[in-house]
Computed example of a mutant assay.
Amino acid sequence: MQREGGRGRDTGEHDVEPVESVLDELYATPPSDFVARREEHAAAARTDGRKEDARAIHAARRPTPAAWAANLLRRSRPEESRRFLELGQALREAHRTLDAAGLKELSAQRRHIVSALSRQAAQLAREAGHQLSQAAQQEVESTLRAVLADPDAADQWAGGRLAGSLTPPSEFPSDTAPAEPAPRELPRPDTRRRTPADRGRDELAERRRKRREELVRAEQAAEKAARQLADRRAEEADAEASLRRTDEEHDRAREEVSAAERRLGQAHEELDRAERERRKAEERRRAAAGALSRAEREARETAREVDRLAGRVR
């Protein structure tokens, strides 16, 4: 039976699980169990002769805790996730059309919903037996802000298979630094005299603008560092899991070698015992052969003596 998508086949003994279903299951699996489950599915695909499926499964990257929580939120709260994606579309449209009233209302919704959904993601993670760190929860919020701001990020999150957290684009207003009109967006003629107070306000506005830019850059750098840290931790966890598997295989091989050595020692003992028994049997055979020869000789001599005596009697 040909499997959906034309990849793989049914052996006739069991139904072949589609790769897409396997990947969906993997990215809903807690990160601590991800590698083991991935290798089980990849091994099953290789056993079935589905090499392409096995490669696709093995290539799946282990999600960070924050990415897993975001995936869990997407799959466990489908209706709320749909409304969140729709909010992102409306918010991006408001930015494109410069609808100030709509933008103000949607921005307030954005901050409220991002906060609420990030708390839901943390709650879902706790219910699954995993407590999110503060840094991981911040990564969830970063991912949700990116989903609102970036259509590509929205598509990635909608698929439910994030391996790492997402970062909002720099041109999208940050929740921590609401957008304000730039003090000198366009040059305009000034028909009145500039007072020291005017210049002071302009300087203050310029300093605020620079501080906002520095804050945005610092937030982006912090989020990037957090993603890199999470990636390194995931790589370390994968390496540790691989080392544990290798240690287990080494221990099993060592036990098998020890058992083989014990069996070899027992076989040598059996061989030595058989050799000793063989030598004893050979000695008994030689002794019996010697006794037989002596008995035959005595029988011949006795027979000759009988013949000799019988001749005298006749």
Rank of each mutant, 00 (worst) to 15 (best):
V22R: 01
F84L: 00
E270Y: 08
P65I: 03
G159W: 00
Q131S: 15
A253T: 12
E223I: 13
R314V: 10
A121V: 00
R308W: 12
E185H: 13
D198W: 01
R284Y: 05
R62Y: 02
V216D: 06
E185T: 10
A226K: 03
R96Y: 11
W157K: 02
R193C: 07
Q109S: 14
R46T: 08
A43W: 07
D272T: 12
A241L: 02
R208N: 13
E275G: 04
S107Y: 03
E213R: 09
R227Y: 10
E298P: 03
A42L: 02
R161S: 04
H112A: 15
A234S: 09
A205C: 11
S115T: 03
V35S: 11
T191I: 07
R50F: 13
R192K: 15
A303Y: 07
T167G: 03
T47I: 03
T191Y: 06
L91A: 02
E240M: 07
I113K: 11
G311C: 15
A45D: 14
R262H: 10
E105M: 09
G311V: 15
Q131G: 06
R245F: 07
P189A: 05
F34Q: 01
R77Q: 03
P181Q: 00
S115L: 08
R46N: 08
D53E: 08
D175R: 11
A303S: 11
